[in-house]
C-alpha cells in the first residue's frame, strides 16, 4: 500500500526537524556559549551606538577593534608589549628555576623545611604586591622592580606545591624500592620526581596567574613602559577602548600561558598508564 504523498512529506519534515534538534543538542554547549557571546557583543555595540550610555564609559566592540588595529601600527605599543613580556618571562623563569629545586629540597629535608618554613608561610600570607613600595625603593621604577614582584608572586605557589608533591609521594613505592635496595638517587629520580610533576604543574599554573598580576600591578603602580603603563595612561585620558585592548591582551596572555602549560603537562604525563 502506498503512503499518501502529504503524509510522506510531513514524515520527511519531521525527520528533518529531528535531525536539526539532534544537531543542536550535540553542539548545545557551543551553540549557547557562542550565542551568548554574540548577544553580549551586540548589546554592547548597541548601547554604545544608541547613545544610551556614553561611549566614553563603555566604548564598544567596533571601537575596541579599531583601537587594536591602530595600536598594532604604533611602534610604542610593540615596545610596551616587549617590556611586559620580558618582565613576565624573566620573573617567571626565575621563579621556576628557584622554586622547583628548592621545593624538592624542602620536601625531602625536614630540617630545611623547619628553617625556611616561617618565611615561606609569612610571604604566602601576604599578597606580594603589597611589597611593591619596598621593591620600588630597592630596585627603582624600571624593569627590575617588576621582575622582582613577578618573581615573588610566582615563586611561592610553585614552591609550596612542589614541596607538598614530594610529601605525598606514594610511601608504598618508596618502601618497595628500599627493600630492593634502590639508591637514594634512584628513588628520587624514578619515584619522587615523577610523582611530583603534576603538583609542579598545578603550582606553575597558579604561579603564572600571580606573575601576570605582578606585571599589571607593578606597571600600574609605577613604570615608564609596558602594557600596564599603557592602560593606566589610557585610563587617565579616558581612552576606554585602549584600556579594553590592554585588558583583553592580558586575558589572552593568561589563557595562552595556561594552555601552553596544559600542553606541556600532557606531554610529561604521556608515559603514565591510563587508569583502567
Amino acid at each position: 500500500m502506498a503512503i499518501p504523498a502529504h503524509l510522506e512529506l510531513s514524515a520527511h519534515r519531521e525527520r528533518r526537524r529531528a535531525r536539526l534538534v539532534r544537531l543542536y543538542l550535540e553542539h548545545e554547549r557551543v551553540a549557547i556559549a557562542g550565542g551568548t557571546l554574540l548577544a553580549v557583543l551586540l548589546v554592547w555595540e548597541a548601547l554604545g551606538a544608541s547613545g544610551l550610555v556614553d561611549p566614553l564609559f563603555i566604548s564598544s566592540p567596533t571601537r575596541v577593534a579599531r583601537a587594536a588595529w591602530l595600536l598594532s601600527h604604533d611602534r610604542d605599543f610593540w615596545t610596551d608589549l616587549q617590556v611586559s613580556a620580558t618582565e613576565f618571562m624573566l620573573g617567571y623563569a626565575g621563579a621556576l628555576a628557584v622554586a622547583i629545586p628548592l621545593g624538592l629540597a624542602v620536601g625531602l629535608s625536614k630540617r630545611l623545611q623547619y628553617l625556611i618554613g616561617p618565611f615561606v608561610d609569612t610571604l604566602n600570607a601576604v599578597p606580594r604586591v603589597t611589597l611593591l613600595p619596598l621593591i620600588i625603593i630597592w630596585f627603582g621604577i624600571g624593569i627590575w622592580s617588576k621582575i622582582v614582584v613577578v618573581f615573588l608572586g610566582a615563586v611561592i605557589p610553585v614552591l609550596i606545591n612542589t614541596q607538598s608533591g614530594v610529601k605525598t609521594s606514594e610511601a608504598r613505592f618508596i618502601r618497595v624500592a628500599r627493600s630492593f635496595s634502590a639508591s637514594k638517587l634512584k628513588i628520587f629520580s624514578s619515584i619522587i620526581l615523577p610523582g611530583t610533576v603534576p603538583f609542579i604543574f598545578t603550582g606553575a599554573k597558579y604561579g603564572a596567574g600571580r606573575a601576570l598580576l605582578g606585571v599589571v600591578v607593578g606597571e600600574l603602580y609605577a613604570s615608564t613602559a609596558g602594557l600596564g603603563h599603557l592602560i593606566a595612561e589610557a585610563g587617565n585620558t579616558f581612552q576606554t577602548d585602549i584600556v579594553f585592548v590592554g585588558a583583553l591582551l592580558f586575558m589572552a596572555a593568561g589563557l595562552i600561558t595556561v594552555a601552553l602549560l596544559d600542553a606541556l603537562e600532557r606531554r610529561f604525563e604521556r608515559w603514565r598508564p591510563q587508569p583502567r
Binding site: E28, R29, I32, A33, G35, T36, L37, L56, F57, G209, L212, L213, V215, V216, V217, L220, G228, I231, A232, A234, G235, N236, F238, T240, V243, F244, G246, A247, F250, M251, G254, L255, V258
Partner: peptide
C-alpha cells in the same frame, strides 16, 4: 544551559589578572 552560557566568560575572566580592569573601574 546557564552554565554553558556563562562558562566562557568565567574561564576568560579567571585567566585574566582582574586588576587590569582597574583603570576601567576608575573611569
Amino acid at each position: 544551559r546557564l552554565s554553558y552560557a556563562v562558562e566562557p566568560f568565567l574561564a576568560a575572566l579567571n585567566a585574566t589578572p582582574q586588576v587590569a580592569f582597574l583603570p576601567l573601574i576608575v573611569i
